[in-house]
Nucleic acid binder design. Structure first.
Length: 272
DNA sequence: CGCCAGGCCTGCACGC
DNA sequence: TGCGTGCAGGCCTGGC
C-alpha cells in the first residue's frame, strides 16, 4: 500500500486522536510481522502517554516519552481507528486501546509491516539510522541529490527508491516524479546534471505534496485513517498506464521492468 | 495454475 | 583485504 503520502495521510488523520492520550491496553493477535512484535510491548507501553505522532520516511513514530513505538505498513498495512465495537478481522494483528476508548488498529494481510520499540532516540534504531533526507525538507535539494548520485551507475529510478538517497519515495511516486521531470527512468544516475537534479527534486516534492493533498492513493484495499479513500490514483500520469496515451504528448506510454519492479514512462517526453 | 502487487532487508558476486 | 555497489531472493496473502 503505502508510500510517503499514504503514511503522511495516516499520520495526519490519527495525530489529534492520539496525542496526549494514555495507552490503556495493547492487544497483539499475531506477532509474526517482518520483525516479531516484541513480547514485552504491553509492559513497556501500558500506562504510557502518547507525546507525539511523527513520521520518518515511511515509518510512523509514536513517541511515548521513555521510548517510541515504530510502525511500518509494508506493502499491505493500514492503521486506522475502527469503531470500538467492530470486532477484529483475520489480518488485524495489533490494537492499541486508549484510555478514552479509542482503538488504533493495524491490519496487514501480507505481514511485511512491523511494530517495534526503541528506547530513547528512535532515529538511532538500525532501521532508521541510515535513511536519507526527507524529500519535503530543506535537507533535500538538487545539490544533495547530485552528490548522492555521482558514483551510481544504476538507473535513476532505482536510485530514487534507495532509502539512503532520499526517504519515502516508492515505486509509484518514483515513476510519477520522473515523468513530471522529463527524465527517462533508465538513465544512469551519475549522468544526471546538477540542473536536472534540481528539477527532479522539485518534481518529487510537487508529486508528493499533490498526493498528500489528495489524501494519498487508494489501490486495492488502502483507505486512510478516517476510512476515506485517497484519490491521487486518478491523477497518475504514468503509473499502471502502459499503452495509454501520454497526457502531455499523446504517445503511448511504456511499461518495463527495472530491478523486479514495474516502471512506466513516456518514451517521447522523458529523455536520457 | 502462474503471475502480479504500493517495501525493504539480506546475502552474494563483482570491480576498484 | 575491504569497501561500495548491483542484483536476486525472500518474506507473505490475495486477486486476476
Amino acid at each position: 500500500m503505502p508510500e510517503l503520502p499514504e503514511v503522511e495521510t495516516t499520520r495526519r488523520g490519527l495525530e489529534r486522536h492520539l496525542e496526549g492520550q494514555r495507552i490503556a491496553r495493547i492487544t497483539v493477535r499475531d506477532r509474526r510481522l517482518r520483525l516479531p512484535v516484541p513480547r514485552r510491548l504491553p509492559s513497556l507501553l501500558g500506562g504510557a502517554t502518547i507525546k507525539a505522532l511523527t513520521r520518518r520516511g515511511k515509518y510512523l513514530l509514536i513517541d511515548c516519552g521513555a521510548g517510541t513505538l515504530i510502525i511500518h505498513l509494508g506493502m499491505s498495512g493500514r492503521l486506522w481507528l475502527p469503531d470500538p465495537a467492530t470486532p477484529p478481522e483475520k489480518h488485524d494483528h495489533f490494537d492499541l486501546l486508549l484510555a478514552n476508548g479509542t482503538v488504533v488498529r493495524l491490519r496487514d494481510p501480507r505481514r511485511f509491516g512491523l511494530v517495534v520499540w526503541q528506547r530513547g532516540d528512535p532515529l538511532r534504531h538500525r532501521l532508521l539510522a541510515h535513511i536519507g533526507p526527507e524529500p519535503l525538507s530543506a535537507q533535500f535539494d538538487g545539490t544533495v541529490l547530485h552528490r548522492a548520485t555521482r558514483n551510481r551507475s544504476a538507473a535513476i529510478k532505482q536510485v530514487l527508491m534507495d532509502s539512503r538517497v532520499v526517504a519515502g519515495v516508492g515505486n509509484i511516486y518514483a515513476n510519477e516524479a520522473l515523468h513530471r521531470a522529463g527524465i527517462h527512468p533508465g538513465l544512469e544516475a551519475r549522468r544526471l546534471t546538477l540542473a536536472r537534479c534540481g528539477i527532479l527534486v522539485e518534481k518529487i516534492r510537487e508529486t508528493l505534496n499533490a498526493a498528500i493533498t489528495a489524501g494519498g492513493s487508494s489501490l486495492r484495499d488502502y483507505v486512510g485513517s478516517d476510512g476515506m479513500a485517497g484519490n491521487f490514483q486518478s491523477e497518475f500520469l504514468v503509473y499502471d498506464r502502459a499503452g495509454k496515451p501520454c497526457v502531455t504528448c499523446g504517445a503511448p506510454l511504456r511499461g518495463i521492468r527495472q530491478g523486479q519492479r514495474s516502471t512506466f514512462y513516456c518514451p517521447k517526453c522523458q529523455k536520457r
